[in-house]
């Protein structure tokens, strides 16, 4: 549905996006991750036709954004970083303006607007001036605007920014519901959000793609070593020394007191040492009360990829 081939964007001497390529299948939700200034918004602005690229091609549904801009724009609903709202209009006035702008037939406008407002939870606020709405509701109007015209592709630049936790959950639910029949690219800082919504993640850093895969695969790929958190009862020194004698354990340390003569330990190993750990601890009469693997979250991966610049693929 969306193809991005060797896309480059320069602002004068500064290279914002450097020769990136990826594609999004029909019906897929792609998460677009990266620190501030990584080139997320620039890429999104180019896909939607707001900015022209310096080099490279963007195709939506087979149409090139440079040669057939109107065909592409017709298929895309875009929520930019700052929602493009006219504050001197009410929600209804604004959405009917957007409907006309996006060439929704006159007789379909009212019904569609009512559906959209219901979906994003704006029905009760439809007569209010956008200027008087809170940030969260303005964000909803921004999302509603992107949905006008029922576009096949949605490009959402940080859709949940500025919302309170309850609203974030609601908006995520809306996005997931929308995803069933649409192709979505979503950028975000909030990593759990991406792992909760997206089927595939592209991590972009300093204008280049640093990693690209499913959230699950990304976590297992990096997770070559096992991290364990354990609660063990017994003498601290004895436990640490015994554990260190196990082949594969790289690091173990008592991190917190968890009860009488009981400590919480964190350990790193480069292979699965859970069996041996059990028998060794049993051997020195120090029962393991609790043991759980601490798998890497997307957050760890993100920091790993972005700071070290390691290639994961």
């Amino acid at each position: 549905m969306i193809e991005i081939i060797n896309l480059t964007k320069k602002y004068g001497q500064v290279v914002a996006v450097n020769n990136i390529s990826f594609s999004v299948q029909k019906g897929e939700i792609l998460g677009f991750l990266g620190p501030n200034g990584a080139g997320k918004s620039t890429t999104m602005n180019i896909i939607t036709g707001y900015l022209p690229s310096t080099a490279g091609t963007v195709k939506v549904d087979g149409f090139d954004i440079l040669t057939h801009p109107e065909e592409v724009k017709k298929r895309i609903g875009f929520l930019p970083e700052a929602p493009p709202l006219y504050r001197d209009m009410t929600v209804t006035e604004y959405l009917s303006f957007v409907s006309s702008l996006k060439k929704v037939p006159k007789n379909k406008q009212k019904g569609q607007m009512a559906d959209i407002m219901e979906l994003v939870g704006l029905t009760d606020h439809r007569r209010r001036l956008i200027d008087n709405l809170s940030k969260g509701y303005r964000q909803r109007v921004g999302l509603a605007q992107a949905l006008v015209g029922n576009p096949e592709v949605l490009i959402l630049d940080e859709p949940t920014v500025g919302l309170d936790p309850k609203q974030i959950i609601e908006i995520r639910r809306v996005i997931k519901a929308l995803a069933q029949e649409r192709t979505i690219i979503l950028s975000s800082h909030i990593l759990p959000e991406v792992s909760a919504i997206c089927e595939r993640v592209v991590i972009i850093n300093k204008g280049v793609i640093a990693a690209e895969d499913t959230p699950q695969r990304l976590s297992s790929d990096i997770n070559q070593f096992l991290k364990l958190t354990m609660i063990i009862k017994g003498d601290q020194n004895l436990i640490v020394n015994t554990a260190k004698s196990i082949d594969g354990v790289k690091y173990i340390e008592a991190s917190a007191k968890a009860g009488e003569n009981t400590y919480k330990y964190v350990m790193d190993a480069d292979k699965d040492v859970r069996d041996e750990m059990f028998f060794k601890m049993a051997g020195i009469n120090c029962p393991i009360l609790e043991s759980k693997p601490s798998t890497m979250t997307l957050e760890d991966i993100f920091i790993n990829v972005v700071t070290k610049g390691t290639e994961v693929n």
Binding site: Y50, K73, A82, P84, L101
Partner: peptide, 14 residues
């Protein structure tokens, strides 16, 4: 200034 330019420019209008 308000960013509404994005809306106009990304709409299917020349």
């Amino acid at each position: 200034k308000n960013g509404t330019e994005v809306l106009l420019m990304t709409s299917p209008t020349s």
